[in-house]
């Protein structure tokens, strides 16, 4: 499977100034793990939102195997691991409800991520960010998953937990031939985890035809 964002341009409603994402292209194949590093405010999170289908681009399109992503109903094959886990779960629901809301999660995934049964009885405010992020990851690793976009998804974790989560995620990615996009400021992490590291400038250049200047410097 191939996830392709082509010439994406997006500006939030009533936003002034240049669009955060302007003529960006990215192609991600199954089994590939692309690392993306760029300075803050360059539009990495917005790009992830576009690729995961949270927003519709004003120009360009997001295709999954040549079909527009918007055509997929139910569990979306492209999932975004949100950078703030405490915003990614409903604060008023017990985590057990949140975890199994879209369908039961495999026991092996819960064990692999070290999710304890006692967590599922609690509310999000009673767990740490790291514990919440494991629950978010378990939810995203549903059977229909093909591509996972990790937007600074381990920045809030201590090093040991980071290592545990990444090794589990990498084993899942190998086993299930998942495509990963890893956005991080952490160069060492990208080196270790990804098969390819790209810069923001490369994403913009790859989509501009020769002779026209890139929109984002």
């Amino acid at each position: 499977m191939i996830l392709a964002g082509k010439n994406l341009t997006f500006r939030y409603p009533r936003q002034k100034g240049p669009p955060p994402v302007d003529g960006v292209s990215l192609t991600l194949s199954s089994g590939e793990r692309i690392g993306l590093a760029a300075p803050s405010g360059r539009g990495k999170t917005t790009l992830c939102r576009l690729l995961a289908g949270w927003e519709r681009p004003q120009a360009g399109q997001v295709l999954l195997d040549r079909l527009p992503l918007a055509q997929y109903r139910g569990f979306c094959p492209v999932q975004l691991l949100w950078q703030h886990p405490e915003q990614a779960v409903d604060p008023l629901l017990r985590l057990g409800t949140t975890l199994h809301e879209a369908g039961p999660v495999d026991r092996g995934i819960l064990d692999g991520l070290g999710i304890r049964n006692s967590w599922l009885e609690r509310y999000p405010s009673e767990l740490s960010s790291g514990e919440l992020q494991r629950i978010c990851l378990a939810r995203a690793l549903g059977p229909g998953l093909r591509f996972l976009l990790c937007d600074e998804s381990s920045a809030m974790l201590d090093l040991i937990t980071q290592a545990q989560l990444w090794s589990f995620l990498l084993s899942q990615a190998e086993e299930r031939n998942l495509g990963l996009l890893v956005v991080s400021h952490h160069a060492a992490l990208l080196e270790r985890v990804c098969t390819k590291v790209v810069s923001w400038a490369e994403l913009v250049e790859s989509s501009t035809s020769p002779g026209t200047a890139g929109g984002c410097g």
Binding site: W54, R73, C76, H84, A88, R139
Partner: peptide, 17 residues
């Protein structure tokens, strides 16, 4: 606009739910 609702929708939770 809350991320948890966006996520729930992309995870396949139905509109009624």
């Amino acid at each position: 606009g809350a991320p948890y609702l966006q996520l729930a929708r992309r995870l396949g939770v139905s509109r009624g739910r």
